[in-house]
Design a protein around this nucleic acid. Structure first.
Lengths: 183, 183
DNA sequence: TGGCCTGGTTAAGCTACCTTAACTGTCTTG
DNA sequence: CAAGACAGTTAAGGTAGCTTAACCAGGCCA
């Protein structure tokens, strides 16, 4: 099982995704992206920005010459807009369909926006669109869903066709001994 | 905006989550988890395992004495089972509700299982359960959804209440200049 | 008892991403 | 045009998570 290793082999890391998004945002907001602004926006040091820019440049995602402004290459701007769209779709799904609080939704979306595949994002958008729609079948579903039970009724093994011997919901919510030393 | 930084401050990293899951699996399968087995299962070197175990031990997630077997603490086993449940729920949602291919679903689930909050996991489980149910309203919804359009009809600004000026689906699927040097 | 194989450990080194401290380039202002 | 001020850079150092290489502990067998 080696899927887990692809995590660290992603073309664009979490950090990189946020650098790219920041550059795109600053360009849109003030017309140019400079090292200091990027550093302020991300809450990192300017030297950190400089070195990250070097590595983004090596990957062909930005262009940046000494003491100059930062530009996104087509590749970089593609990543930025894909990640941004992914974040929008995720947040919408989490808040409006799942009904999770804004705060939680934003954080979760931020964590995973750059990790979900386009296939999944697209299907998520489709489901969200359909569920939000004014079609009677969607309205009826929403109504019924709102009133549906929040927890599984019975967890004799096999009683619930989602869970096995132990209730999925229970293990999601109350992991044994959550306690964890601060160190 | 500092949410993005919490990513690297997560109590348990992607790697750690997989180490914990592996220990739980080996314990369940063969009754004990040893360094070599963990290394084989994860495809990393034994020395890598040793040093990761040290750091998991510091965090109170496993116990391990020199040349001995590895045990999960209650905390560690809690994390393992929470992550495992999260993965199950995600995979089920992705394949059965979104209809994404198994291969993609597994990879995406693996990437994000340890990052989604319990709140979101629980709601995802609830939605999945409800949508899969035999209730007429759910069946009707599934039927209508299956036949719903796969792409947005019209993207004059404002025509679609999901997208803004540019179509979300388009930017998810065809980011400008996907090309990216291998380096 | 000595030799050897297996499993585990340490040591040293690499990459990614961050930090602080010190230096340099550029721009403004008197 | 020189003096600062400020923006940006380099240098050096830290943590996480890996690697390879070399070393050590314990079981097995002649």
């Amino acid at each position: 099982m080696d899927i887990w290793k692809r995590y660290s082999e992603k073309e664009v890391s979490h950090s990189m995704a946020h650098y790219l998004q920041t550059v795109a945002l600053l360009k849109a907001e003030k017309g140019h992206a400079r090292v200091g602004d990027i550093a302020d926006h991300l809450g990192v040091s300017k030297s950190g920005v400089t070195s990250m820019l070097r590595s983004l440049e090596k990957r062909g995602l930005v262009s940046h010459e000494k003491y100059g402004c930062v530009e996104l290459t087509p590749g970089g701007s593609g990543f930025a807009s894909r990640t941004e769209s992914s974040r929008i779709v995720l947040t919408m799904f989490l808040t409006e369909i799942l009904g999770v609080p804004e705060e939680v939704a934003s954080e979760d979306a931020c964590m995973i926006e750059h990790l979900v595949s386009p296939e999944v994002s697209v299907e998520l958008l489709r489901l969200t669109t359909f569920m939000r729609s004014r079609l009677p079948v969607a309205a009826a579903f929403r109504e019924a869903y709102r009133n549906s039970p929040r927890s599984c009724a019975d967890h004799a093994p096999g009683a619930c066709d989602m869970c096995g011997d132990t209730c999925l919901r229970d293990s999601l919510v109350a992991p044994v001994g959550r306690a964890l030393p601060t160190l």
